[in-house]
Nucleic acid binder design. Structure first.
Length: 218
DNA sequence: ATCCGGATCGCCT
DNA sequence: GGCGATCCGGATG
């Protein structure tokens, strides 16, 4: 214990981007494994990055909550594209949401990133979200994290292996620290357990009441 | 040309 | 917990 205890420097370690192959798997597996990875966006204003703490899977035309349920259109086209690209869409007239496309070309599916924990550029994130008082509210939602990281529609279709938009490998999150629940904010297929988050992480967007942990702590 | 609903957020009670 | 903001994509006429 008196040994050289160098502080953990995960914040400043520059890990390689996850390869296309990472995304060319079942969407559920990709969603699970993206926990702990680092989503990074580079703009003229600077670099901002966050550790992924919450994801959801949207899988194919038979998943009525997936945008591909309506078939291939100009909007949903990226879902049908190659794995490892971005699908960024506009919602409710004001917000962008970021997804990583999975599986294979012509197999429309993606992982929605619902929350990240700031890792790089937190000052930049605060400037981009001037009305936010507490740092915990900077990136704890799919629309919020796009505002904070600077992700917009122009990032749609971009590969995630190089700037300006990429996802870097992170420290793996063990199963014991992962919770699975139904997805949030949808009405179709609302009971399918396709949401993953790091248990008790303060940046997770929210927990549905019936999945709240009890005071018993189990 | 018009209508409608949405993978959200922030402010209100 | 409720609700308005705000606008695009897709469907319908």
């Amino acid at each position: 214990m008196t040994r050289d205890a160098a502080p953990r420097a995960r914040r400043s370690r520059l890990t390689p981007p996850l390869p296309k192959k990472f995304y060319a798997r079942e969407t559920e597996q990709v969603a699970r494994d993206l926990l702990g990875a680092v989503l990074e966006c580079q703009t003229p204003d600077g670099v901002a990055a966050g550790r992924i703490v919450e994801t959801e899977a949207y899988i194919g035309e038979h998943d009525l909550a997936c945008h591909a349920a309506a078939g291939r259109t100009s909007r949903t086209a990226p879902l049908y594209g190659p794995p490892g690209i971005a699908y960024v869409y506009f919602i409710y007239g004001m917000y962008w949401c970021f997804n990583a496309v999975t599986r294979a070309e012509h197999e429309p599916s993606a992982v929605l990133v619902r929350a990240v924990e700031p890792v790089v550029g937190i000052e930049l994130m605060r400037r981009r979200r001037p009305r936010v008082r507490r740092d915990v509210d900077l990136t704890n939602g799919p629309g919020k994290l796009c505002l904070a990281l600077g992700i917009v529609g122009e990032h749609n279709w971009l590969p995630l292996q190089r700037p300006p938009l990429l996802i870097r490998a992170g420290d793996p999150v063990p199963d014991e620290r992962v919770t699975v629940t139904p997805r949030i904010g949808i009405t179709q297929a609302a009971d399918w357990p396709l949401r993953w988050f790091i248990t008790d992480n303060p940046y997770v967007s929210k927990t549905p009441p019936h999945f709240k942990r009890t005071s018993a702590g189990n």
